[in-house]
Simulated assay, not measured.
Amino acid sequence: MSGEIPPAQPPPDPPHHELVHPLSLWRQRHNPLYRCTDRLQTRIALALLLLVPVLGLAATLAVGDAAHRHYRAAAEHQRQSLRLTTAVLTHDAPDHPEPGSAEARENRYPATVRFTDPSGRTRTAETGVLPGLKAGSSVHVWVDADGAIAEPPMTAAQIRSRTMGWGLVAFLTVLLAGAAAYRCATVVLRRRNLAEWDTEWAETAPRWTTSP
């Protein structure tokens, strides 16, 4: 009576969670234990190593160009639809804890101002002003067609910064997509390897068992 077939013990897995160096992948091709699935995984890794940087750069340039054109058009629309006018503070602005410092020159505190809208009406609204300004001080504000205070048109530096941000997002998206594709491929290949190993072990194990 033959003994029971022991459970299959698959060989240790090569690292699947990260792309390995192309030279090490090339050396593995001469290994006699190298499987077809290993060869396929190598080709997938090499293809991704070549394609991801190229596709990432192409996506960065395409998205960056689209973002730059969008923000430049938006800034031009803002310049045409907004009007720069002079407003007067109705009360003193809060003082900064460190007057004269670089931080004080950059900070803006909310304050109520009075100004004349495009239709000639006198209005009051809240806007950000430098700290320490006294009541009656004049400040420049941007006003839209409805007479409401609006954000100033985007500057060239703001357009450039937002464009670079979208370009970086595009590159990272391609990078993550490449990593996800490689991960999915390794999972599928590992399942195939385990299935083949179980099949081969079921055929081989009976030859290793002995009869009492």
Rank of each mutant, 00 (worst) to 15 (best):
T155Q: 03
P131N: 01
W201D: 01
V63Q: 00
Q28S: 14
A58N: 02
K134E: 03
G3N: 12
E126G: 09
Y34V: 10
S24F: 11
D13G: 14
Q78T: 11
T163A: 04
T173K: 05
V139L: 03
R79V: 01
R79Q: 01
A181T: 15
R27Q: 10
A150L: 08
V188S: 03
Y182N: 15
Y182G: 10
L176S: 08
Q158S: 05
Q78A: 08
A157E: 06
V187M: 07
R29E: 04
G128C: 01
Q80V: 08
E200Y: 11
H30M: 12
D144F: 02
T199M: 14
D65P: 04
A111D: 00
S81N: 09
I149Q: 03
R29T: 14
L175G: 10
T155M: 04
S211T: 15
A180F: 11
A181W: 07
S211H: 14
R35W: 07
A8K: 07
A47I: 08
T124H: 03
V129D: 00
T155K: 05
I149M: 02
G165N: 05
T163E: 00
C184K: 08
G165S: 04
R43P: 08
L194A: 04
P12N: 02
T42D: 04
P15G: 07
G64N: 01
V54T: 08
E76T: 09
T204G: 12
R183G: 04
A170L: 03
A111P: 03
A66L: 12
G132M: 01
H16I: 15
C36I: 06
R121W: 14
E98F: 06
A185L: 01
M164R: 13
P152V: 14
R27L: 06
R108F: 02
A45Q: 14
P94V: 04
D144Y: 01
D92R: 12
R183C: 07
E196H: 12
S101P: 01
T42Q: 11
A205N: 13
